[in-house]
Amino acid sequence: MSTSLQIIIFFLVGLIGFSQENTFTNPLKSSGPDPYSTYDNGYYYYTNTEQNKLVLWKTKSLANISGAEKKEIWMPPAGTAYSNSIWAPEIHKINDKWYMYFAADDGDNNNHRMYALENISEDPFKGEWKFKGKISAWPDRWAIDGNVFHYKNELFMIWSGWEGNTNSQQNIYIAKMKNPLEIESKRVLIAEPTYNWEKQGDLDDDINPPHVSVNEGPQYLEKGGKIFIVFSANGCWTDYYSLGLLSFTGEDILNPANWEKHSKPIFTKSEENGVYAPGHNSFFKSPDGTEDWILYHANSNPGEGCANKRSPRMQKINWNQDGSPNLGVPVSEDTVLKVPSE
């Protein structure tokens, strides 16, 4: 073989390798409901619902999450109020400490509440994750899907909850936090299912009564001084699970009148692309900070509901002229995407 031909072959092989390392397709792994990530010191720390434990992944690129370093950080003891149905964990770094927020119950869904772990190590893969107890507002009601954020140097939590003690519908609440482990204000209702697209589908079983309307999975999003909450609507057991949008329009973030719900969903199923029930999302920036991305779960086939077939996916988002997020359409599993910009 001539030297020139060897050089060409070497170049082509290298080009193929480069292409594979810089592109990806969804889903990111075969299962992983409620995906969430935090970027710190060159690494993404990723987690998703595992039902009976809390697991953390560490990776330079979320596109490679299926092969990333993985660590079980906590499993609850049996027989407690938080031993079962561990849902929607989120990892946050606040005041140089790490916190993992999650929902759990004692085996009875009616008793779901929010809880937290704390780790004072610089690297959340090191040190000890300590259980710090329940996080609740007044009144103390059913609560899941907590998301924590800073606004004007103060800490707030948003979550999905019930108005009373029975499952008539799920609403979005907000409260001010005294510190990362305590809520100091009363909860404030800022969104409840009102439009028909938030009430599609029902299921009559022990967990989900018929015609239950759902707003859940709230996620804080800010861009250019504009503030939004993206939330999931409909039951996850339906193919109509989708994302809605709240826009903040005032100064007082605890005033319900300052939150405006958009009349139409902003991210829905795509039968053409083979993506069903897209929802329970989070957001992240590319490593170089120039791109905004959505991380979400979805099913590959209709009727797959809330089971472990929900798989994590991601795609870059854009912004509308009015400053609101444009999430586009869930891309197909055949669509080759460029990895986030480094």
Rank of each mutant, 00 (worst) to 15 (best):
T249D: 13
T249M: 14
G250Q: 07
G250R: 01
E251Q: 14
D252Y: 11
I253V: 11
L254V: 03
N255D: 13
N255M: 07
N255H: 05
A257Y: 09
A257F: 11
W259N: 09
W259I: 07
E260I: 13
E260T: 14
E260V: 15
K261I: 10
H262K: 15
S263F: 13
K264Y: 15
P265S: 10
I266H: 03
F267K: 05
T268F: 08
T268R: 10
K269D: 08
K269Q: 12
S270C: 07
S270L: 05
E271I: 12
G274V: 01
G274A: 02
V275P: 02
V275G: 03
Y276F: 12
A277P: 05
G279Y: 02
H280L: 07
N281S: 10
N281D: 07
S282T: 03
F284K: 04
F284I: 01
F284L: 04
F284D: 05
K285N: 13
K285F: 08
S286M: 02
S286R: 00
D288R: 08
G289I: 01
G289D: 01
E291I: 01
E291F: 00
W293M: 03
I294A: 00
Y296I: 07
Y296P: 04
H297K: 04
H297N: 07
A298N: 05
N299C: 11
S300C: 09
S300I: 11
N301Y: 15
N301M: 15
N301E: 15
G303P: 08
G303A: 08
E304S: 10
G305L: 12
G305E: 10
G305N: 13
C306A: 10
C306L: 09
A307Q: 15
A307Y: 15
N308R: 13
N308V: 14
N308E: 14
K309A: 15
S311C: 09
S311K: 11
Q315F: 03
Q315M: 04
I317D: 00
N318S: 14
W319C: 01
G323I: 01
S324V: 01
